[in-house]
Design a protein around this nucleic acid. Structure first.
Lengths: 208, 208
DNA sequence: CGTCACATTGATGCCTCTCAAAGCTTGTGG
DNA sequence: CCACAAGCTTTGAGAGGCATCAATGTGACG
């Protein structure tokens, strides 16, 4: 079981019955805001977006789960899911039974610690996201988001992630390109060169 | 030890040496962004703000820790603190040694589970915060924040929390008051009446 | 009683949202 | 294999809203 090896925490003790492999088509929903929580998930391939919607019609992309990562861990302690989970591209995910995971938490201290670490990472990531949304200028905000997250996906999705309209994001990107702080690879594909403050290079859209 | 009883998780097994009581003056910093992490904290009285600063000079209030709650739990799995912690009013806090807490995690499954729950709550709170920052209109955003968080503190701090200027927040508040969606108690003190959609009433500023 | 921090209100300008239209890319069906 | 359709990207123009700067009011505290 290759996929088990890349899980962020040891699952050797998890009951086999607690695992199910699922295939999602593009735009297919895994669960929706308000659904009863029954499981957390691990992404084998593809990508899943966690999106929350407000009454007023606004939406936020809370998280983009990609290969090798788990998502919806917070639902372990919640009765219902607080956001939608939809595949933005065809995806394979493993469903991990909530009750089995919780049982494992009490039975296996190492597992509990690993899961705690996962949660702590989530908290830090969300804080980084909050920090970025607090930046007023569109240009600065887009650049900061690119450096910190370098999300792969459409510009439109990225725009929602940074809390701007697609147009504002695009205009910010083109200004950043003019300044040489960002490189445009091709239509809808941008990256932050290594030379820009940050060590690593990131792209908005993967060339998958 | 009264304070121990209201801790969100059992600390009976925590070494006495791991606990220290601290008294903070108003505006006194407990730790700063970049400091080595050595402990998490529990608030006995007063309030502590966790604030993160960006290079561009922006800041976000990540969390307002009040009596009976812990904060900086995420630092358990981080080498340095990622934000400043400052008392916004005179406060008493208990310092809980990081190493002792981590030891307890592996030794006591119940403690581990309780801590996991705490982390999950943190994640949900941050997501709610993200949801609110995604709301474009100042009026809607302020109202949503009041309903969901009903922060006590100055309007200025509340403004930073919702990602607006003090002026914009004030103007939004006065419009909401005109509409009857929010009640102004006195200078700098507002509350959401019970009649407004939400069951509970909240205030920006406590009368402490 | 004076000072200080915060609340409040006003005027102005920039920036982002909104609406609109055209270009590019991918995929699907004939 | 081609043509059309759909979705995303890109650019443009106009308007509204929030930030910014400025000034005054007000309560708290020494």
């Amino acid at each position: 079981m290759i996929e088990i090896m890349i899980l962020p925490f040891p699952l050797s003790n998890l009951k086999r019955t607690g695992r199910t492999k699922l295939h999602l088509k593009k735009n297919e929903a895994l669960f929706r805001q308000g659904d009863i929580t029954t499981a957390i998930f691990f992404v084998i391939s593809g990508a899943v977006h966690l999106v929350r919607h407000t009454h007023e019609g606004h939406s936020v992309i809370l998280h983009r789960a990609v290969s090798g990562t788990t998502f919806a861990e917070a639902s372990l302690f919640s009765d219902v899911y607080h956001c939608d989970a939809t595949a933005t591209e065809p995806a394979e995910v493993i469903r991990l039974s909530k009750t089995d995971i919780l049982a494992l938490v009490t039975a296996d201290p190492d597992f509990a610690q690993a899961l705690l670490k996962r949660f702590a990472q989530d908290v830090q990531t969300h804080r980084k996201h909050l920090e970025i949304l607090a930046i007023k200028g569109a240009e600065d905000r887009v650049f900061a988001a690119l450096v910190s997250f370098g999300q792969s996906g459409t510009v439109t999705a990225f725009a929602i992630f940074v809390g701007l309209t697609t147009e504002a994001t695009l205009r910010a990107l083109s200004k950043l390109v003019q300044q040489g702080k960002v490189t445009k690879l091709k239509r809808g594909h941008y990256e932050v060169p290594d030379t820009s403050i940050t060590p690593r290079s990131v792209t908005i859209k993967s060339s998958v």
